[in-house]
Structures are given as structure tokens and as C-alpha cells.
Nucleic acid binder design. Structure first.
Length: 944
RNA sequence: GCAGGGGUAGCAAAGCUUGGUCAAAUGCGCAGGAUUGAGGUUCCUGUCUCUUAGGAGUUCGAGGGUUCAAAUCCCUUCCCCUGCACCA
């Protein structure tokens, strides 16, 4: 038995590959294959989700390399944005959870506890995080055996990279793709800064977003009151407004107009591009009973309601009791309220106004639903919330505006909502009021509010020419698996203006405005180009300051003369030439592989960036994708503690096994559910294959008599078919198919062959398949394959030529004969199983006569359909398989008797009792009549 | 709601583009047998239902259609997952 210490084998080949620089190609005359996978983000360890993407990628790349391509697969590291910063921040503030997490991460690499602590402590500096993990990730990658060129590493924080990204944004600006405008964001007033999800308490479990309320202006004296709603379309149904009598309100000058709103609202408005000056403060109770005039000219009363929250939006709400459960219940409560007995007649006089029709409800859905759910008063908050939500959903998606809604009559609520809001704002009858979707606080405990940035930078993916060109790219782009092409199409359609810079985080500053950091998805769209040049930039010590726009103009776009470019940048002409040559050699990117999650952003931006910056010949050629990995049926997350890190995995299982598992468990287009039990089960087959293959490799060195037999023909045919099918599958990126064929099918075939064959036959076949099979498997399990290959006295199977199919060995007949034998065996077993209580002594197998076969062939050929056949036994039999015999008449020509006789011992052994083979012509048995072509008659005899 | 993907035997997962060879690969699980002191491992066999001679019946979310023939093509319908932006 072949025993290997997998840790040792892995270490050995890892170090051999990388000391020999086996995967570091340079410009040559060979045909090239430039392949990339998005660089990982460096805030922690890699997990099986990364593993899946990188292993699939590696299989593709190894196949291409063995198929004679000059393959470049480089790697860099992504550090842009807030996450690294957030980690450092938390560690600096001694956040116990973060420290524990990072102790665990670092502990995976370090032996010494004291050292681990020291390292984690150093993470107060974000660059320490970046530097530490980028080094460790390289080690991890090398451990998985992915054949990456590590000589072109960089991080997105490197000054060379900054210059490269700045150049891109200069180009976007020149083309008019970069624009500035208003944008609402989450904001902390006390920190004077934008806040992201990672800054907000509990935002990872309970997301906070910015909502746009429409605050309509209703006249009250010489001022307006601002009442807010998320449903502007109901403005036609207003019957009154509500104020919280306990609340604090102000009168303020907002953009030159006197308005009433809550005190909190006035402050918020000042962050939303409004000039706000508070004139006086007053209590909500002072508004009760006042009559206001809505923008539609209707005079309605202001009534008290405790449910109005002055901390939310403008502090007043208008009331649409026909459609809003809260409003309806509030009015009912008010009628019963003794404190406000003076208002009774006003409330009593309010008539509900219906503005939306929706199936299943009459004129006043809110009233109906409140009555149906038996909501008694405002205290039943949970019930009212539910009623509101249900009704809103129903009306929003299914409702229509009624006749009384002027120009919006007949529209769906969905459309009317947007249009009414726009209209009110345009007519200056309302303003936008941005508010957080729930009360939220930063991790430091400051209030999070919605603010409007007036100078936010956007990339306008809707620029007509840009979008058109990008669709052109998409038309030509090969997407693997194809099913995702449509999604790309839809995403391209949908892409609009997208904010592309932030006020904080690591990364590159906007070239013309250094207060802005280019946001992390926007700085990672064109970087495959960077791999082609960074090696020479670093090797020749070109300074970041030399990487002026002219440098990139020249290299990527061929602009300026080389003399000019050299003069401006101070880069020598030959060097400039050589860098451009390298870019021109490798570009375009032939294939980019990543997870499907990136389609809606990263991959789409990647396409757009290329159409904006490069000529058509340099646009990407293909994108391949794989779905995500879940763990034991659940999404992986730190909080669930079910994240499987590659580190842990490889401590216990051979890398080659894990690689096999990751490519074989699911197709690229489906989720992979990582189950430890399955992996362990797979290990059995894995060990078996290693044992079998090692044996074959040893056999292949033995001498043998060169004599082919039906069995060797069968095995070689199976093998060569597998070579053929595997190769096709790999060419089409059907990686799972390839692994099934190369690994499982062949293993099963060999096991069967081995049970049927003599040692001589095994040696004969081994000599012909050993090398090929090792090569075939090497993309999946490179470590063991290198080990086996070296035992044949050769170097680096990873760099060998992919096996060529020996078509002449594919022998359909040999395979058919063996299938036939299996069918017969199956048949005999079936019959035996029906003989429940009898012990079988022996079996007689009677093969159909020649005459019957000829007859059968005639019948099949002379008739077009099974209906035309008559009802004799042979015809009845033929009816069942009519069409398959018709398309493959050679089936019927098989020499059944010879096959069975030659396999007689095998049949007896498999069945466990002796068998006799007879021909129908020479048999004395009555049952011989039952024999049909390909279906011999079987006669069992029993021990008494 | 919009967009994309999906529903296959106890479970997981192929097959669907190009209809027949599909009661449907493969793996797990389960059952019986061999091996073993026992367990595990390994090997063989079976695993939709009925059937004491190789037969029959019912299945691929549900319902309808096209066809000599449908898991595969068309229509309708129900259910599930993902994304919906400034976040890596």
C-alpha cells in the first residue's frame, strides 16, 4: 500500500515550484493566456469560499498551461475603504471581540502566544494589518497549490497604484463621465463625517438606510407647517393633520420661508442643504385646534396625537384616515378622549376621503382593516404596525388612484407615489426630508442622521456613449456559465449614477480634489492592466512621481510620441518601450474568474472601465463565475461561528483532497454546501485513487507481453473516452464534469477492469495509461501528481503537455459487449431475487438463435414504427426497444455466445453458482423459446 | 414589486441547450450478505410500488398542451433563493 505523508509532499512541491519560479512567465512568442481573479481583501484569513474560487481558477489555469499557452495569473491585494481602518480603530480602542478575533486569525500562523499578542497590538496601525496579512495570504495561496505568479504583487494603497487610479479618474473626467451632485447619506453630526455600516451599532444585523420623506407645506398664518409622509400620493385624501402636544417645536426660517416643524427637524434640515434659522420655540399643544390650508387649498384642523414622534422627520404628520390605520385609530381615540372633549364636534365632522381603490377592500381600507383586526386604540402599536404594513404593501403594488386625484387618476400607486412627490416638490409645495429608517447610533454613541452632501462625486454609467460601448463589449464577451449573461445585460441596463468617492477610508485621492478618497469598488476596475506593468516599474525603480498621466497615456493608449512620454516622465525610452510591449503582449485579459456575487457591481464596472479607457481590441474576452459556499446548510458568518478557514481545513486534510472536494461537489453555477461529513466520505475514494494510481505507476515500469485482449481493449477504450470527454469539458470550463470523468468514472472503470483482468492485462494497460492519467489529474490534485510523476523520473508534471486522445483506441464494440454482459448479469440477479425461499444450485443461459437475430433485424428495418409490428413474441419484444435498435442496429449483431463463454468464470464467480451457456439452436430446454436477441433465456435450478 | 436563478427519489446533486438508450449518473444515508472476537474499515448486492421466472404500475413542485414518445419543448400556476447600490 502506498503511504504518503501529505504535509511533507505538499511542502516539498510547494517549495520546488516556487523556488523554480515555475509559474512566472515573461513576454514570449508563444500564444498567451492572461487570467485573473479579483484580489482578496486583506482583513483576515481565507475561507473555503475563497478556496472554491481560487481552486476552480487554478484548474482552468493549469489546464491552459498544459495545453501549450504561456499563462499569466498574477495576484495583488485590496486594502481600499473602511474595513481595514475599522479593524485598526477597534483594536486601538481595545474592543474585546475584535481583539479576540484577530488573536485567532494571527494564531493560525504564529506559534508563540506572546508574539501573537504583539502582532495584534501592532494592528492599531492599519498598514500593519495590510502588511501582515498580505504576506500571510501569499503563504495561504501557496499552500492551496494555486499556480500564481507572485512576482507582480502590489496593494491598492501603493503609491504606484494611486498614480494608476488617478490617471483613470482624469480620463473619466475628460470624457465627462465624472459628475458632482447632491446625495443623501448617513452622517454623524458630532463627528462631522459620513458613517458606514461598520460604524453603526448593530447595523450588520439591523440595517439602517436613508429614507426620503415628502414634507408638504400647509399654510398656517404667515408660515407653513411641514408634515411628512412616505406616501405623497395620499395627499388627496388629507382630512386633518396631527401634532404631538407634548413635543418641542420651533418656528424657523428655512431657505427664507417661515415654517413650523419639530425642534429636532430644524436641526436635521440644516444638514440637508437648507438655510435654517430658528425664530422661536413652542410646544406642540399650541397648535392644537388650529386650521391649516393644505397645498391643495383644503382647510383642515390640526389635532393632537401621541403617536406623532418629533424625533422622526418633521414632527407633524398629515392624516389620511381612509388609508392609514394610525390616522384612523387616532381619530377614533380622539372622539373618546375626555381631555379633548372640546374637539369632539370637529373630529365627528371629519369625513373620510377615499383616494385609492384596491381589490378586496371598499372605500376605506384602513377603517376595514382596523375593524377586522379589532384594534381598540393607539396603544395596540404592534397590531397597527402590522395593519399599516399589510395595507401599504397591498395598496402600493395593486392599488390604483381614484378619479379625485386630478392628473394622477388611474395611475398605479407605485407610479403615482413617485410622480406626486416630484410634482409637489416642483410646485414648491413640498420639500424632501431625509431620515434614517430607524433610530441609529454610531459605535461611539453619537446620533446617526441623514445628511445631504452637495458635492458628491458620481460616475455616470448612464452616459449614453459609455453605455452603448459597454453593451458592445458585452455582446462579444463570453460568460461562463452562460446562464449569467442575461443578468449582466440587465445590470448594464440598470446601472446609473454611482457615487465613487468617500470622505474617509484608505485608498487613492481624487486627483483634482484631495478631500475625496476613491471608493473601493471604483478603484478596482482596471487593475488587470496594472499587473502587466508593475513588475518592470519596480524592478527598474521608476518613482511614483514619474508615473504621470503621460506615462499611462502612452502605455495603455499609445498617445504621445515615445520621446515626448520619456521626456515628461523621465523614464528611459527603451524601458518605456519594454513596458508598453509587455502590456500589449498580455492584454486583453482572456479570462477573469470570480464569484457570482460580483456581477452587479465589480464585474460590471470592470467592463465599463475597459470601454472607457481602451480600444476595442483590448477589451476583456471572457468572465467565468462560481456560486458561493455555505457551510453545513447555512450561510457562513462570523457570528454563527461556522466559517471554515482554509488554514483549519489544511491542518487536517490533504490539500489535494480539499481541492477535489471543492471542484467536484457542485457545478460552478450552484451553491456549494460544505459538509465535513461529505469531505470525510470523499477521503475514502481519494485514498483509493491514490493507491490505485500508485500501483498503476509501478505496473507501468514492468515488462509485459504485448497482447491485446477484449478486456484491455475495453479498459483502454474507457480510458481514452475519458481523456476525450475530460478535455472537452475543461475547454468548456465544465470543471465538475471533468473531475467526475477523470476521477470517479476512471476509478470505477479501473476497479471493474481489475476484477476482470489478469496481471498481464493490467500491466499492459498500465503502461499505456499511467502517464496520461497522472497528467489528467494534475490540475485537481497537483501535489500527489507531482509526487507520482517524479517517481517516473520526470520533472514537473505541472509543466507537461496535456495528453492527446488516442482516438483509435476508442472501441465502441468493446464497451457494448461489456455492457451487454452487465445486463445479462443484472437479469439473472433479478430473476434470482424473485425466488425468495429457494437456494439456487446453478443457472443455464440460452442465447437466441442466429435466425431470430436476422429476423429481428429485418423486422426493425422494414417497419417505421412499433405499431406496425405484429403480435408474435419476437415482435412484442422488439416493440419495447424499437427506436433504440432502429438507430443502432449493430447492437443486434453482437456475438452474444462468444462473449458469455469467455466471461463464464466471471459470471459464475459474481453470481456465486455455476453457469452453463447454450445456444438456442443446440439446446434441449423448452425455455429456449424465450431467448430474444440481447436477452438470453435464463433457467435456474435449485437445490432441493 | 422589479431583475436573475431554482424546485429531480430519504438527503445532496447530475440530466433539461440537441425529446427516445431515464425508474433517472454519482455521493451520502439505509438494508442484506462476506470479512472481523465485536465495532470500524474493506468488498459484494439491493434501496419508488406491487409481483414465487425476467412482468406490471406510478414518479422528476402543481395543472394543462404539443408529440408515436416529455424530467427534457410550449402555456398557466404555486413555492424557494439572491440582488435592488455607494457596501467590501
Amino acid at each position: 500500500m502506498f503511504e504518503l505523508d501529505f504535509i511533507e509532499v505538499q511542502e516539498k512541491w510547494r517549495s520546488k515550484w516556487f523556488t523554480a519560479n515555475a509559474f512566472e512567465p515573461s513576454v514570449s512568442s508563444e500564444k498567451k493566456f492572461f487570467f485573473t481573479v479579483p484580489y482578496p481583501y486583506v482583513t483576515g484569513n481565507l475561507h473555503v469560499g475563497h478556496g472554491r474560487t481560487y481552486v476552480n481558477a487554478d484548474v482552468i489555469v493549469r489546464f491552459k498551461r498544459m495545453s501549450g499557452f504561456n499563462v499569466l495569473w498574477p495576484m495583488g491585494f485590496h486594502i481600499t475603504g473602511t474595513p481595514v481602518l475599522a479593524v485598526s480603530d477597534k483594536i486601538a480602542k481595545n474592543d474585546p471581540e475584535t481583539i479576540a478575533l484577530y488573536l485567532e486569525y494571527v494564531n493560525a500562523y504564529e506559534q508563540d502566544d506572546a508574539k501573537t499578542k504583539e502582532i495584534v497590538n501592532s494592528f492599531k496601525d492599519p498598514w500593519a494589518v495590510v502588511n501582515y496579512f498580505s504576506k500571510k495570504l501569499v503563504q495561504d495561496f501557496q499552500k492551496i497549490g494555486v499556480s500564481i505568479d507572485y512576482s507582480r504583487q502590489f496593494t491598492t494603497g501603493d503609491p504606484e497604484y494611486n498614480a494608476f487610479v488617478q490617471w483613470q479618474f482624469l480620463k473619466y473626467k475628460e470624457k465627462g463621465f465624472l459628475k458632482q451632485g447632491d446625495y443623501p447619506i448617513l452622517y454623524s453630526a458630532s463627528e462631522k463625517n459620513a458613517v458606514g455600516e461598520d460604524d453603526i451599532k448593530d447595523a450588520d444585523t439591523d440595517a439602517v438606510e436613508v429614507q426620503e420623506f415628502i414634507s408638504i407645506k400647509s399654510k398656517l398664518g404667515d408660515s407653513f407647517i411641514l408634515s411628512s409622509t412616505l406616501r405623497p400620493e395620499t395627499v388627496f385624501g388629507i382630512t386633518n393633520a396631527f401634532v404631538n402636544p407634548e413635543g418641542d417645536y420651533v418656528q424657523a426660517l428655512v431657505d427664507g420661508e417661515k415654517v413650523f416643524c419639530s425642534k429636532a427637524a430644524a436641526e436635521k434640515l440644516s444638514f440637508q442643504k437648507h438655510e435654517v434659522k430658528v425664530l422661536k420655540e413652542l410646544k406642540g399643544s399650541e397648535f392644537v385646534g388650529k386650521i391649516i390650508e393644505t397645498p391643495l387649498g383644503k382647510k383642515v384642523p390640526l389635532l393632537p396625537a401621541s403617536f406623532v414622534n418629533v424625533e422622526n422627520a418633521s414632527g407633524f404628520v398629515h392624516s389620511v384616515p381612509a388609508h392609514a390605520p394610525y390616522d384612523y385609530v387616532a381619530l377614533q381615540d380622539l372622539k373618546k378622549d375626555k381631555k379633548h372633549a372640546d374637539l369632539f364636534s370637529i373630529v365627528e365632522g371629519i369625513e373620510l376621503i377615499s383616494v385609492i381603490s384596491v381589490e378586496g377592500f371598499g372605500d376605506f381600507p384602513a377603517k376595514e382593516i382596523v375593524e377586522k383586526m379589532k384594534i381598540a386604540n393607539l396603544k395596540e402599536k404592534a397590531k397597527i404596525d402590522k395593519a399599516t404594513q399589510d395595507l401599504y404593501k397591498l395598496e402600493f403594488y395593486q392599488g390604483r388612484m381614484k378619479e379625485n386625484c386630478s392628473q394622477f387618476a388611474g395611475l398605479s400607486v407605485e407610479q403615482a407615489k413617485k410622480k406626486t412627490g416630484e410634482w409637489l416638490k416642483q410646485e414648491k409645495k413640498a420639500i424632501s426630508f431625509y431620515e434614517t429608517s430607524r433610530p441609529a447610533f454610531t459605535r461611539h454613541g453619537d446620533k446617526v442622521i441623514a445628511a445631504v452632501l452637495s458635492d458628491q462625486w458620481f460616475l455616470d454609467y448612464n452616459s449614453p456613449d459609455w453605455k452603448k460601448k459597454s453593451f458592445e463589449l458585452l455582446d462579444e464577451l463570453k460568460i461562463i456559465p452562460e446562464q449569467y449573461k442575461k443578468q449582466f445585460h440587465d445590470v448594464f441596463e440598470w446601472l446609473d449614477k454611482r457615487p465613487c468617492a468617500r470622505r474617509r477610508g484608505l485608498g487613492t485621492q481624487l486627483p483634482f480634489n484631495n478631500e475625496w478618497i476613491i471608493e473601493s469598488l471604483s478603484d478596482s476596475t482596471f487593475y488587470p492592466a496594472f499587473y502587466t506593468i508593475i513588475k518592470q516599474i519596480k524592478a527598474n525603480k521608476i518613482q511614483p512621481s514619474q508615473l504621470k498621466p503621460e506615462f499611462f497615456d502612452f502605455v495603455f493608449q499609445g498617445k504621445h510620441s515615445i520621446q515626448e512620454a520619456s521626456k515628461t516622465t523621465g523614464v528611459p525610452i527603451e524601458l518605456l518601450q519594454s513596458i508598453k510591449k509587455e502590456f500589449d503582449y498580455w492584454y486583453p485579459c482572456d479570462q477573469r474568474h470570480t464569484g457570482t456575487a460580483h456581477i452587479t457591481n465589480h464585474l460590471s464596472f470592470y467592463c465599463f472601465a475597459h470601454t472607457a479607457l481602451l480600444q476595442k481590441e483590448k477589451w476583456p474576452k471572457s468572465i467565468s463565475l462560481n456560486e458561493l459556499v455555505i457551510s453545513e446548510g447555512q450561510k457562513m458568518s462570523k457570528s454563527k461561528g461556522n466559517v471554515v478557514t482554509l488554514h483549519k481545513l489544511f491542518a487536517q486534510y490533504p490539500v489535494d483532497l480539499a481541492r477535489l472536494y471543492l471542484v467536484n461537489t457542485a457545478d460552478l453555477g450552484s451553491k456549494l454546501d460544505f459538509r465535513l461529513k461529505d469531505l470525510q466520505a470523499l477521503q475514502k475514494s481519494f485514498n483509493k485513487l491514490i493507491a490505485v494510481l500508485s500501483e498503476i505507476v509501478i505496473f507501468s515500469t514492468h515488462d509485459s507481453a504485448e497482447k491485446e485482449t477484449p478486456m484491455t481493449k475495453w479498459m483502454l477504450s474507457k480510458f481514452e473516452s475519458a481523456v476525450k470527454e475530460s478535455t472537452t469539458a475543461l475547454k468548456e470550463n465544465r470543471i465538475r464534469d471533468y473531475s467526475q470523468k477523470t476521477f470517479f468514472d476512471l476509478l470505477n472503470s479501473w476497479e471493474y477492469f481489475s476484477s476482470r483482468a489478469t496481471p498481464e492485462e493490467e500491466i499492459l494497460v498500465s503502461k499505456k495509461i499511467a502517464e496520461k492519467w497522472v497528467k489528467l489529474l494534475s490540475p485537481i490534485m497537483p501535489f500527489y501528481c507531482e509526487e507520482l510523476w517524479s517517481s517516473l523520473g520526470k520533472d514537473f508534471v505541472s509543466l507537461q503537455q496535456w495528453p492527446v486522445v488516442s482516438e483509435e483506441l476508442i472501441d465502441e464494440n468493446a464497451e457494448l459487449e461489456e455492457d451487454y454482459l452487465q445486463n445479462v448479469l443484472q437479469d439473472v440477479r433479478r430473476i434470482s431475487s424473485l425466488m425468495k425461499n429457494k437456494k439456487i444450485a446453478s443457472a443455464k443461459i440460452i442465447v437466441a438463435s442466429k435466425e431470430k437475430k436476422t429476423q429481428a433485424i429485418n423486422l426493425i428495418q422494414k417497419h417505421a414504427s412499433p405499431e406496425e409490428l405484429s403480435t408474435d413474441a419476437l415482435s412484442e419484444y422488439l416493440k419495447k426497444n424499437f427506436y433504440s435498435y432502429r438507430t443502432k442496429p449493430e447492437l443486434l449483431e453482437l456475438s452474444e455466445y462468444d462473449k458469455l463463454v469467455s466471461a463464464k468464470d466471471f459470471i459464475s464467480e459474481s453470481l456465486g453458482y455455476p453457469v452453463v451457456i447454450e445456444k438456442e439452436e443446440s439446446s434441449n430446454e423448452e425455455k429456449k423459446e424465450k431467448a430474444m436477441p440481447l436477452k438470453p433465456s435464463v433457467l435456474l435450478s435449485f437445490t432441493s
